[in-house]
Simulated assay, not measured.
Amino acid sequence: MDDLTFRHQSEFHLKSTFWLSVTAGTLILPFAFYHLTHQHVGIGIGAMITSLSLYLVAWGCYRKTYKTIYTFIWLTPFTTLFVAYLTNLIGITGTYWCYSTLILYYFMMSERQAWISNIIFALINVPLVWHLFETHEAIRFSVTFSLVSAYSAIFLHIIAKQYSELHKQAITDQLTGLYNRTLLKDSLVQAINQANRSNTAFTLIIMDVDHFKKINDELGHEIGDHVLIQLGVFLKGFLRDSDKVFRIGGEEFLILLYNTDEANSIGIAEKIRKGIENLSLIPGRPVTVSIGVAGLSSVRDWKHWMKTCDKNLYEAKNSGRNRVVDCKG
């Protein structure tokens, strides 16, 4: 999975976990105060710890430092034992907390962690219910517990899958399958930050199809789309997985080369130019591209970086097209 895609999915999980933790922590708090002051102090202490733990999770989400392993290591064993304690102390009413606890597992942790937590919870609490209560009560609990667990797992899986698909559609150019402009700014900013931290070299390549309007006007948009699709296939096959390829305009493509300085990128750009020229995308009619190259070097602003690369592209087009121009001309 691409780093930026993963980051966006993580942000979605952080937001959902934040609001779920705040809501659950707030709803449990009055229950905790009530037992601390009027009923059973042990229940009140356990509920208070649970509430505070949820607020800590929310704080971690707010600061974007939350890791699901924290919840898995702490809340899974604590809530499992606390619900078992409740059930043993107050009877069948204690089992009501099983359902909300399961839902918390599935929405606050990864699917794998939630399944493991679910199994641990079931191994402790289901036998306890069968030991404490009548058979008909234990059967009802086991059935409803299994249904809630299954529904939560299925629902979470569907939500995660749909979000992943929608996010992929949002960042992908439908025609070529390349990235669109949605992640462009984040990608460039991330590259600049990484270069500042680790001195990693990055280079931009902006490529424009020569006389593309003529192709559309004379041969039709279907042929024009075919050219763009095949260019996308060529670029994805030519470049490394660590590089990013964007379609940023009708016939304009941007390539972000990872760990590659400008000197080496010029050679790569030349290979791309020659490779496209030799593709024979339209029988009897050559398809060529003009390319601008700009290394990161002294540039520390993503807009300036793109502007520099664009300037080199325009220089390539104004100099006769079908050529590569870098910052040195």
Rank of each mutant, 00 (worst) to 15 (best):
F12L: 11
F12E: 09
F12W: 13
F12R: 13
H13K: 14
H13W: 11
H13Q: 14
H13R: 15
L14F: 12
L14R: 15
L14E: 10
L14H: 15
K15E: 11
S16K: 14
S16L: 11
S16P: 07
S16W: 11
S16E: 08
S16Y: 08
S16Q: 13
S16C: 11
T17H: 10
T17I: 15
F18S: 06
F18C: 12
F18Q: 10
W19M: 10
W19Q: 04
W19A: 02
L20C: 12
L20I: 14
L20T: 14
S21C: 13
S21N: 13
S21E: 10
V22W: 04
V22A: 09
V22F: 07
V22E: 01
T23K: 07
T23I: 15
T23P: 13
T23W: 14
A24H: 02
A24M: 15
A24Q: 03
A24D: 04
A24P: 00
A24C: 14
L27Q: 07
L27V: 15
L27T: 14
L27R: 11
L27M: 13
L27D: 06
L27A: 11
I28H: 01
I28Y: 01
I28P: 03
I28G: 01
I28T: 07
I28L: 04
L29V: 07
L29D: 02
L29C: 05
P30L: 00
P30N: 00
P30E: 01
P30A: 00
P30Y: 00
P30C: 00
F31P: 01
F31K: 03
F31T: 08
F31S: 06
A32V: 04
A32W: 00
A32S: 09
F33T: 10
F33C: 10
Y34N: 07
Y34K: 05
Y34S: 09
Y34V: 13
Y34I: 12
Y34T: 12
Y34F: 14
H35L: 04
H35A: 05
H35T: 09
L36N: 05
L36H: 03
L36S: 04
H38F: 11
H38V: 14
H38N: 10
H38W: 08
H38D: 06
H38S: 10
Q39W: 11
Q39R: 15
Q39C: 08
Q39M: 12
H40I: 15
H40L: 09
V41F: 12
V41P: 10
V41T: 12
G42W: 10
G42I: 13
G42C: 07
I43W: 03
I43C: 04
I43S: 06
I43L: 14
G44H: 00
G44W: 00
G44V: 03
G44Q: 00
G44C: 02
I45S: 02
I45T: 04
I45H: 02
G46R: 01
G46C: 03
G46S: 02
A47P: 02
A47I: 00
A47D: 11
M48I: 05
M48E: 03
M48N: 03
M48V: 05
M48Y: 04
M48K: 04
I49W: 05
I49N: 04
I49P: 07
I49R: 02
I49F: 12
T50P: 06
S51H: 01
S51I: 03
S51Y: 01
L52M: 11
L52V: 15
L52H: 03
L52I: 15
S53Q: 07
S53P: 10
S53E: 07
S53M: 14
S53Y: 10
L54I: 06
L54K: 04
L54G: 02
L54E: 02
L54W: 01
L54Y: 02
